[in-house]
């Protein structure tokens, strides 16, 4: 860094905000959102049925969660490198490992969420004459929502953070600014990237909190009771 260089140059932000480059701030922000949101959504869609299977057949849960924890333990960079040979330097190479990480958190969240349904509530649903499917959709899943959403919050924030590691294979969303800054010895893109990633994480987390408030008005009743 030259002594005269300011830590942050607004002019860089202005000129890189939305130019034609694929590495403009807007484009990378979009890519970042897609690469972090898809794993959370796909992860949830896959974890729901898998979690239900694990509840239905209890013996399945240990092997499934063991496997998912093993996957979770694999460093993301190593997974990106392995997948690079198969799927190439594409967003999907980042999305696939992050989806597995999401599942590692969300499958237990679904299982724990369903386990949080009190036994007397389940029993009374049976006794009222709910069919098993209707009981799942109208009683058990709604009651599981707070636990599942708590898992979603962890997954959303960690995905947003982990996407930036993809910069090492050229698919890091805003993380690309880190490699750029490092290579050019120019801090402005790195600072802009960090700020935007933190903001993105805050917005995503806030949106999930809002969603939880909308979906579970009865939880507020519980807190105030």
């Amino acid at each position: 860094m030259d002594d005269g260089q300011p830590l942050f140059r607004w002019s860089w932000v202005v000129s890189n905000w939305d130019n034609d480059s694929p590495n403009s701030i807007v484009n990378l922000l979009q890519a970042h959102i897609v690469m972090s949101a898809v794993p959370v959504i796909v992860g949830l869609l896959v974890s729901l049925p898998l979690g239900l299977l694990c509840v239905r057949w209890r013996w399945l849960y240990q092997p499934v969660s063991g496997l998912m924890n093993a996957v979770y333990a694999l460093p993301s960079l190593a997974l990106f490198m392995i997948l690079l040979a198969v799927t190439g330097a594409e967003p999907v190479t980042v999305i696939i490992p992050l989806t597995f990480y999401a599942m590692a958190v969300l499958i237990p969240a679904v299982v724990d969420g369903l386990a949080s349904v009190p036994e007397h509530v389940r029993q009374s649903a049976v006794a009222m004459g709910f069919t098993p499917l209707r009981r799942l959709v109208q009683v058990e899943l709604p009651i599981a929502v707070p636990v599942v959403l708590a898992g979603m919050r962890v997954v959303a924030v960690s995905s947003i953070s982990l996407v930036s590691v993809g910069a090492l294979i050229g698919q890091g969303g805003l993380g690309n600014f880190f490699t750029d800054a490092y290579q050019r010895d120019f801090y402005t893109p790195a600072i802009a990237g960090i700020v935007l990633i933190v903001l993105l994480a805050l917005v995503a987390d806030g949106a999930l909190v809002l969603l939880q408030r909308l979906l579970t008005p009865w939880m507020r009743a519980r807190r105030s009771a």
């Binding site: 009190p118 029993q123 009374s124 004459g129 009683v139």
Partner: peptide, 22 residues
């Protein structure tokens, strides 16, 4: 059929078993 049978029989249990989300 159990669901049909149960809808015709009222049931009250110890902790009331109310649905917390409704």
């Amino acid at each position: 059929d159990p669901p049909t049978l149960r809808r015709g029989i009222g049931y009250v249990i110890q902790q009331a078993g109310l649905f917390p989300h409704r």
